[in-house]
Amino acid sequence: MLDIKNLNAGYGEMHVLRAIDLTISQGEVVSVVGSNGAGKSTLLKAISGIIKFTGMITWNNESLSSLKAHTIVQRGIVHVPEGRKIFPEMTVVENLMMGGFLCKKDQQKNLERVFDLFPKLAQRRTQLGGTMSGGEQQMLAIGRGIMGNPKLLLLDEPSLGLSPLFTEVVFGAIRTINTSGVTVLLVEQNVYQSLNISHRGYVIETGRIVLTGTGEELLNNQDVKKAFLGM
């Protein structure tokens, strides 16, 4: 479904990603785990067209390298960015409507889908995004992503800064979204939780993939245990 070969990307003179190979198949949850600054967010930004890259990213046999960010969204790749980046001076419903900017005819159906997933958002319809708590903003950001009818959902650190309670809610929601047929690429520092819900995972270190395997294999790997799980 998504095929990445020899991807190099960075910001100006600074190279962040080096020779990344990664594939995602239909229906999977794939996590990319690694420490801060390893290049996880850069990987998602390259896929969604926010930054330029060299190498190959193909999506259902189409190269993404020449497409602009807003066209990539049209192809069904929706990126929920790190730090939520919700629109602070728009209401919850307006934020969600912006997420459905390209698929207005499904707006009503998708709104219901989001409110089913996060009933809390339904109670806050008219609240301004900027006045919500971090956890609520994360629900809104994921909900806004779903409004775009994603085939592949890119999630950047959805549990960052959340309380354990909200973290549970978010990971539960990711499972539900995946069960409904959406492929998920999850980038996380919360290694245990994310590998736990993933079919496969990649470990990334200073811009290179150093390890790959099923979620379970990685969780039982000695290096992963030592580096990330404190065991």
Binding site: V73, F87, M98
Partner: peptide
């Protein structure tokens, strides 16, 4: 308005 509030997020919504 979305572009004015967060340009990068607006791009990710499919806004040109």
């Amino acid at each position: 308005r979305a572009t004015s509030q967060n340009r990068e997020a607006a791009q990710l919504m499919g806004i040109n």
